[in-house]
């Protein structure tokens, strides 16, 4: 229910914003010297002559059945363009997300278990640095070291999945690492502080009083309770991950959604911009919806509401 409402509201905002864009896509496509009747014909063909309400309904109902319209510049269905790019962007985002979780949870737990000791101070220092490094700059440093100096990987580009899964993953590895560093840093700090917070709770003392060791308490009681704030941050961070992925694609010349949308902006291919933006917003709303479901799985207090 909330999910659908959010999507509807978001699509309306995007549509209105794109409506505000000055200039006529048809005129842009045909150039300044286009004859008025050709222009009118193209406008009719693109459906630009209908009133905005009709076009909004047409756009939304089209998306519901997978029809995103036709790109003004490429003259191919937007759905085709987007799905060709999605097979790069989506694996990149997922790889980065997995990497950051795999780094952050052990690091955060380790730091929390050794609170105030050298390991904790060290991990916290590294994460403080990790948060301050712009991911696209870190990506450039990675290219300098691994592509230009060591020549282990190519400096960019994507061979396509046809070249094999291993080649594909290899091309996405550096971008994913660059993306994951900041996410992992933030997440590790959250994991640590959530765990330390949980460890001061009364029920931890109760568990200790029935004979659980510090380790058992951490694993059996603190961890699950600490996952609740961690999930919240994970949901919020996803939006940054998306933005980061779009930017990082530029560093590595990856043919993903990011490059598509920036081309769309410079070429006034607004229908592409509109669709990609909608897709990104959809992803964010979807992830937050999944986070809500995960809450209910973890926390019995939120079930049956």
């Amino acid at each position: 229910m909330m999910f659908g409402l959010s999507l509807a509201a978001a699509s309306l905002v995007i549509f209105v914003m794109i409506e505000l864009v000055p200039g006529d896509p048809a005129a842009f496509m045909l150039g300044i010297n286009a004859a008025p009747d050709t222009l009118a014909a193209l406008r009719a063909e693109l459906g630009l002559d209908a009133n905005p309400a009709v076009r909004y309904v047409r756009w939304v109902s089209g998306m519901l059945i997978g029809d995103f319209g036709v790109s003004y510049t490429y003259q191919v269905p937007v759905a085709e363009l987007v799905s060709a790019r999605l097979v790069v962007s989506l694996p990149l985002a997922v790889m980065a997300l997995l990497l950051s979780i795999l780094i952050a949870i052990p690091a955060g737990m380790f730091a929390a278990a050794r609170r105030g000791q050298a390991a904790d101070v060290g991990i916290m220092g590294v994460t403080q640095l990790g948060i301050a490094i712009p991911n696209f700059w870190f990506a450039m440093l990675l290219v300098m070291v691994f592509a230009i100096h060591l020549r282990w990987v190519s400096a960019g580009g994507f061979p396509g999945w046809e070249a094999g899964v291993i080649e594909g993953v290899k091309a996405l590895l550096l971008p994913a690492v660059a993306l994951a560093v900041q996410q992992a840093s933030i997440l590790a700090r959250v994991v640590r502080s959530a765990l330390l917070d949980t460890l001061t709770q009364d029920y931890i003392r109760t568990a200790r009083a029935r004979g659980l060791s510090r380790r058992q308490v951490l694993v059996r009681h603190a961890f699950r309770n600490a996952m609740i704030p961690v999930l919240t941050i994970l949901g919020l961070q996803f939006s940054f991950l998306i933005a980061g992925a779009v930017i990082i694609e530029n560093v590595f010349f990856l043919p993903g959604l990011g490059r598509l949308v920036f081309q769309g902006i410079t070429q006034r291919d607004l229908i592409v911009v509109e669709s990609v933006v909608m897709l990104l917003v959809f992803a964010v709303i979807m992830v937050n919806f999944m986070v809500d479901i995960a809450y209910a799985i973890i926390d019995p207090r939120l079930r049956r509401r």
Partner: peptide
């Protein structure tokens, strides 16, 4: 708030720049 949160800052920038 929820609605604005659904728009990554980059997407807001893209939309504003497009306009």
């Amino acid at each position: 708030n929820d609605l604005v949160f659904a728009f990554p800052v980059l997407v807001i920038a893209i939309l504003i720049t497009a306009v």
